[in-house]
């Protein structure tokens, strides 16, 4: 059996949780809500993260446009997804919520624009 401390990053409360793993059985204590338990179990099985960045644009007055992934991606793919994001040059005046890269690297997550600043 292994035991470890995990800090939940789901919300600003940042609960310090105690996680015990015995084979397939994972017990979480110290969480204030259900989301903490889900986060702790994911951390032990397949950690997921979100990333926020910017993509280059063809518009000199706004050289970059903020973007993020529409849903969490596997933690180990963060830098691969960053590489994809850094290949993009936006040439259309797209806005908040518009898809920049659909299903990035087959993760099921889209890279979406997070601002209307080009509009």
């Amino acid at each position: 059996m292994t035991e470890q401390t995990i800090v939940c990053i789901t919300c600003p409360r940042g609960c310090t949780m105690n996680v015990k793993q015995d084979g397939d059985e994972i017990t979480v204590t110290g969480n204030s809500c259900k989301r903490g338990e889900v986060f702790a179990v994911n951390e032990l099985t397949h950690p997921m993260r979100t990333i926020c960045s910017t993509v280059s644009t063809a518009f000199p007055e706004s050289p970059v446009l903020p973007c993020r992934v529409s849903t969490d991606i596997p933690k180990e793919m963060i830098f691969d997804v960053m590489k994809e994001i850094n290949k993009v040059v936006v040439k259309e005046r797209i806005g908040r919520g518009d898809v920049i890269i659909p299903d990035v690297l087959g993760t099921g997550a889209d890279v979406i624009a997070t601002s209307d600043l080009l509009k």
Partner: peptide
């Protein structure tokens, strides 16, 4: 800073 930021920005 917030505890969650120590974890998601530094530890990660």
């Amino acid at each position: 800073g917030l505890t969650r930021n120590i974890h998601q920005c530094l530890n990660d």
